[in-house]
Simulated assay, not measured.
Amino acid sequence: MIRRQQGFTLLEVLVAVAVLGVAMAAIIKASSEMTGNAVQLRDRTLASWVASNVLTELRIDRVWETEDRDGETRMAERDWYWEAEIQSTPNPALRRVDIRIFSDPDDTDAITVLTALLADPERQEMDIPPAPPDDEGL
């Protein structure tokens, strides 16, 4: 009685290794893309926070002139570079400000752009709204 050996042939093993290699390459590519996306998302989030901080500083400083400004801010152990372009609007009580955030001072493409309005500090009223009526008599 002739006994056949049980197991895989060399060709079957090579095909299995090739399929495994293609699958591993796809997994590595997907992982690197996800890592790149996470880094980009983190940078855009931080840049948005920097832009919000710059806008708040402009409002606190009561900026009204239409000259452009630029600067550097440190956040999350990184330096961020920003430009604020201030323009007049058809409404004389408002100015438009476009704040662009860069990760490098030589960059031409902004990571994020925040557009907002600045109110004329001379026209802003500091009125405190009246207190709501007291409902004790009901």
Rank of each mutant, 00 (worst) to 15 (best):
D70C: 02
R100T: 05
I128Q: 08
V113T: 06
Q5H: 11
T73A: 04
S48C: 05
L55P: 14
D107I: 08
E12P: 00
R3L: 03
G71I: 01
R96N: 14
S31R: 12
D104V: 02
V13S: 00
D43M: 08
Y81G: 01
Y81P: 09
V15S: 01
V39D: 10
G36Q: 09
R100C: 01
A119Q: 11
L55E: 13
T89P: 06
D70M: 09
I2P: 15
M24C: 15
Q5S: 14
W80M: 04
W80R: 06
P133Y: 04
A38E: 07
N53F: 02
F102G: 04
M126Q: 15
I27H: 15
P132E: 07
R62G: 10
R42L: 12
L114Y: 03
L55S: 10
A25D: 06
E136C: 06
V50M: 03
A84M: 01
L46N: 02
G71Y: 04
A116Q: 04
T35S: 05
P121K: 07
V113A: 00
I28V: 14
D68L: 04
N53P: 02
G7E: 01
R69K: 05
E136H: 10
E77F: 03
V54G: 01
M126H: 15
E85F: 09
V63G: 04
A51C: 00
R95F: 07
R59T: 08
A47D: 00
A26E: 00
L11C: 04
W82M: 01
Y81W: 12
D127W: 07
E77Q: 07
P129V: 00
G137S: 13
N37G: 13
E33W: 15
I99N: 06
D43E: 09
T45I: 10
I86H: 06
G137M: 12
D106M: 06
R95V: 09
R44G: 02
N37E: 11
E72A: 13
M126A: 14
R3G: 01
A51I: 00
S31V: 06
W49P: 02
V17L: 12
I128V: 13
P105F: 05
L138G: 11
E72L: 14
F8T: 00
A23I: 09
E83H: 13
V63R: 12
I27R: 14
Q5N: 13
Q124H: 15
A16C: 05
E67M: 15
V39G: 07
A18E: 02
Q40W: 10
R96Y: 11
V63L: 12
D109Y: 08
T115V: 11
L118T: 03
D104C: 03
Q40H: 09
L10S: 02
I86F: 10
I101F: 04
A30F: 10
E57I: 13
L117C: 07
D106I: 03
W64M: 06
L55F: 15
S103C: 03
Q87V: 09
T108S: 05
M24G: 15
M1E: 09
D68C: 02
L118A: 00
T73G: 00
T89G: 05
E72G: 07
T66E: 14
P90A: 10
M34T: 13
D79N: 11
L58C: 12
T66C: 10
D120L: 01
V50Q: 04
A16E: 00
N37H: 09
A30D: 10
S103Y: 07
